[in-house]
Design a protein around this nucleic acid. Sequence first.
DNA 1: CCCTGGCACTCTTCGCACGCGAGTGCCAGA
DNA 2: TCTGGCACTCGCGTGCGAAGAGTGCCAGGG
Lengths: 338, 338
Amino acid sequence: MLSERRLQVLRAIVQDYVGTEEPVGSKALTERHNLGVSPATVRNDMAALEEEGFIAQPHTSAGRIPTDKGYRLFVDKLAGVKPMSPPERRAIQNFLEGAVDLDDVVARTVRLLAQLTRQVAVVQYPSLTRSTVRHVELLSLAPARLMLVLITDTGRVEQRMVDCPAPFGEASLADLRARLNSRVAGRRFADVPSLVEDLPEAFEAEDRGTVSTVLSTLLETLVEENEERLMIGGTANLTRFGHDFPLTIRPVLEALEEQVVLLKLLGEAKDPGVTVRIGHENAHEGLNSTSVVSVGYGSGGEAVAKLGVVGPTRMDYPGTMGAVRAVARYVGQILAES
Amino acid sequence: MLSERRLQVLRAIVQDYVGTEEPVGSKALTERHNLGVSPATVRNDMAALEEEGFIAQPHTSAGRIPTDKGYRLFVDKLAGVKPMSPPERRAIQNFLEGAVDLDDVVARTVRLLAQLTRQVAVVQYPSLTRSTVRHVELLSLAPARLMLVLITDTGRVEQRMVDCPAPFGEASLADLRARLNSRVAGRRFADVPSLVEDLPEAFEAEDRGTVSTVLSTLLETLVEENEERLMIGGTANLTRFGHDFPLTIRPVLEALEEQVVLLKLLGEAKDPGVTVRIGHENAHEGLNSTSVVSVGYGSGGEAVAKLGVVGPTRMDYPGTMGAVRAVARYVGQILAES
DNA sequence: CCCTGGCACTCTTCGCACGCGAGTGCCAGA
DNA sequence: TCTGGCACTCGCGTGCGAAGAGTGCCAGGG
């Protein structure tokens, strides 16, 4: 087990390294943090920490830098979440309140997160599966061709074409529209399937085929999670990554372009609070030298989507976690209001 | 005036430099292209070309590299557009045909362009202003609150909330919906204002306020060009930019994040064919060392939006122009079909 | 008049040796 | 268990010299 002082040394190393981006040596440590012991003692502690795999030296006789394991310990035990200051909170709120629609909310959130953390921000559009239906609209485009429009409580709109097996009259259409809405409006997506199950039975035999088709299209739309979209911002911050940068930055940019990868990345975080994945904890290879800080957000009490930032493992974890948490909270509020 | 051979020398310099990324000297030139003259002669020509500002040397006694002006001449006079090979065309078509909706078309187009050109691809969503209305839908969300949904021929959907000055009955709503659609369905956005001008007069006095509100919201949506969206891809290709990269790449990433800048960039190109803006010809400072190759695309004969790529001024212009043109053509086809 | 070969000159780049400084590991003593 | 001291190891920056690439200019030839 590590003594209290050794943990302090680790904390000091992480803090210094995050600040200076340079390997930190025993002497510098004792000067900048008053640990009350001499460099020689710190050296012993460092040797122990290295033995345990929390820190490493880039080359012999250079300072130490934290390993992924070291950051993990730092995040779990040595540092809390740094709350935003009141002025910062107000700024966040003001900035988000100017949004006019869902796209704008997401766009503003991305920019805000990127600016606050000076890292790459990723915001997932509110997911369909956990939200509720505001309205379902059916339009007749041609005798046997309908358009289905689904409007969610988060303001998102999805549309689908429906090719009917048989012509469908305006009266039937109005009937279906009314019945459909009376059943599903305000209900959660997850509940919709059971609510509309017996709907075809209320129609004449000739219309049932079309009704079934419409319903299955609706259900398809509801479960189509692969349609989940993301917005990314602050990629220019990647240039602050490090000195060895062409090699580091490329796989990150590639990973960021693959929405599937990012969605999986965000999705993995099951923790109700802020989740941190450090370096090799990220499944995707290109992100092995980055950390991902993410959290769920939602319009009500429940999370409907995730947002987060991607940055170098050498990042200010308390500050980043605080910013991510605060932004998620305020976005949730904005979504609940609209 | 420049002699024919001097133009050939310039062409050779551009081609070599694009290939090798290194300043090209007189000796190498005569070896790789059989110009039929000696290095000494080429040197004289180079001196003349430098005098005229078409090429420059990074430092004394290094080879020459083309200037923006040199590339301009190359693009305008010395090189054509390199057409895609039949297999490439087929590949483009196949890839785009798999798209299921507008978002998917745009996403695939971006990926395709980025892959073909190995540069950053930018695709503008089909613009509202030049397309036509497929359908307008009105939903009653609350007694004095409507939702207006606009569906375009390119499959795009826009929705807006409308707060009515007075409650609006279901009958009036249906009436308005029917009248609105009979007037504007299938018409071009630009024609809509004059088509609905006198619509309020057909309604009872008590409803006119609401009708006017709805109409002005509709017109607002139509002209709201600032809502034009973009999709960007292939940013990982920025890593191939050059050796001096952190400095070059940063402003480019920043510019790419500012949609306004990009939209203006694409919008500037008025040429009906492929437009090339080289280096300092780009108004935005961050893009001074990049070239933008863009072209309009559309579902019918007319362009409704732009797409293009952003790359280093040292790029394969003929190939890039060919790829951009081909992709635009096929996207247009796909949009026309759907 | 234009092209050519030759020659001197300029710069950059690379390799190499050297010295400096930061940092470590270890040991003996308090 | 902590401390001060000491020898050792590397990485990094510097300076210098040689090599190489490329240029500009000039005199001669078609």
